[in-house]
Amino acid sequence: MDVLYFAWVRERIGIPKETVETQASTVTELVAELIAREDRYAAAFADISALRVALDQELSDFDASLTGVREVAFFPPMTGG
């Protein structure tokens, strides 16, 4: 699946987008896999409560299932308007 990062999450991880091969069944499991990879992921995901997630471009939550999901995006709380 495609994994996208925005704002300071993108800056900490160092890339805006990557394709990830994963067996994770939930967002939380995917995050755990990413954290285990490298320090920059651990730094970006250090405080999950400070992050938001969208699945296939709809806001979702970290308990959500990844079944059938093609695009996951991680970002800080939004500051529009």
Binding site: A54, L59, P76, M78
Partner: peptide, 26 residues
């Protein structure tokens, strides 16, 4: 509309100042 645009539309603001750049916290 404004309340929802602030917190539910995927925009992120970054302020560029004299001493560097900083993301605006929600």
């Amino acid at each position: 509309l404004m309340d929802y645009l602030k917190s539910r539309a995927p925009f992120w603001k970054k302020e560029i100042g004299a001493d560097g750049a900083e993301w605006v916290a929600a």
